[in-house]
């Protein structure tokens, strides 16, 4: 037994352990609340075609700029489109495309990070510099430049995001790969004759899943907020497609007289990003040994 304990058990084991912990370690409530909220958002958005009361693109389904009441319980916009239906359908577009982008970004980031992590000192140095440069680049500027080349559209925004968003994943993966390969179990396996592939499969992968999962949750929230922001500026989704940021932009002129137009999409973005942030931050607390409570 030691007073200073070394960190060894894998993130997955540790997460399960701490989620089950009745003493409610920090982060547990965040993860549970965030997951429930996120599940709710995804569920509602997925079943939008069945629960949305109106066609989101159909104009004049009611009076223009109607306040929330009766049939249009969240009001209508300046073309007389039902706001609730548009928020529900807008989320479909936003979540689906963001999820696809995230999947691509994680795949690229993890592969690049692994390659750098396995490289020798010179390759590591070079790779790390490239990744750091990309991380240092403000994402919005790169996306704007890409949109400038391709013309404003949702795919252009996400294409631009693809160019930069992989870098934090590459950086994290590189660090995790190096750390995992320095673990006694990995060194021993190497000395016994293990191939790189075996080491990646058995030593690196289990140590990668937890931290990368945390980053996915945090970065997805950021991406959604960025996409909504750029759509608001007219760079992303184009009318008449419903999208949360574009809807906010659309509501700009009438925001003071018809606040319900801002409220719907605004809340939708807020809740989604909040849920993802809660999950991310909570997971990080749960996996981080340094937050373990020691009595004063």
């Amino acid at each position: 037994m030691r007073l200073l304990d070394s960190a060894r058990a894998g993130a997955g084991t540790r997460l399960r352990e701490r989620l089950r912990d009745r003493a409610r370690p920090p982060g547990r409530a965040l993860v549970v609340a965030g997951s429930v909220l996120l599940a709710l958002v995804v569920l509602v958005v997925l079943v939008a075609p069945w629960i949305a009361p109106f066609d989101p693109a159909a104009q004049r389904v009611g009076p223009r700029l109607a306040p929330p009441e009766g049939e249009h319980w969240s009001g209508t916009d300046r073309f007389g489109r039902d706001t609730a239906s548009r928020v529900l359908h807008g989320g479909r577009q936003t979540l689906l495309v963001t999820a696809a982008t995230m999947a691509a970004v994680v795949a690229v980031g993890v592969v690049v990070g692994t390659v750098i992590g396995l490289a020798g000192p010179r390759g590591d140095d070079l790779g790390r510099r490239v990744v750091d440069t990309v991380v240092a680049f403000p994402a919005v500027i790169v996306i704007l430049a890409f949109v400038g080349l391709r013309g404003p559209s949702l795919p252009a925004v996400l294409g631009g995001a693809l160019l930069v968003w992989w870098a934090p994943f590459a950086r994290l993966t590189r660090a995790l790969v190096r750390a995992a390969l320095a673990e006694p179990s990995a060194v021993t396996a190497r000395a016994l004759g293990a191939s790189r592939l075996h080491l990646l499969r058995t030593e690196v992968r289990p140590r990668l899943v937890g931290p990368v999962g945390v980053l996915v949750a945090v970065e997805t929230g950021q991406l959604i907020a960025t996409v909504a922001g750029l759509s608001f500026l007219g760079m992303g989704a184009q009318p008449p497609d419903p999208e949360w940021g574009a809807m906010l932009a659309d509501a700009r002129g009438a925001a003071l007289s018809s606040p319900h137009l801002v409220l719907g999409p605004g809340l939708a973005v807020l809740v989604t990003v909040l849920a993802l942030t809660c999950v991310g931050e909570g997971l990080r607390d749960l996996l981080d040994r340094s937050t373990q409570v020691v009595r004063p």
Partner: peptide, 15 residues
Amino acid sequence: QLVPQDPRGSLNPWR
């Protein structure tokens, strides 16, 4: 082949 220093640490915890 190697007989490692720390028997527990030298084994992969997931296998």
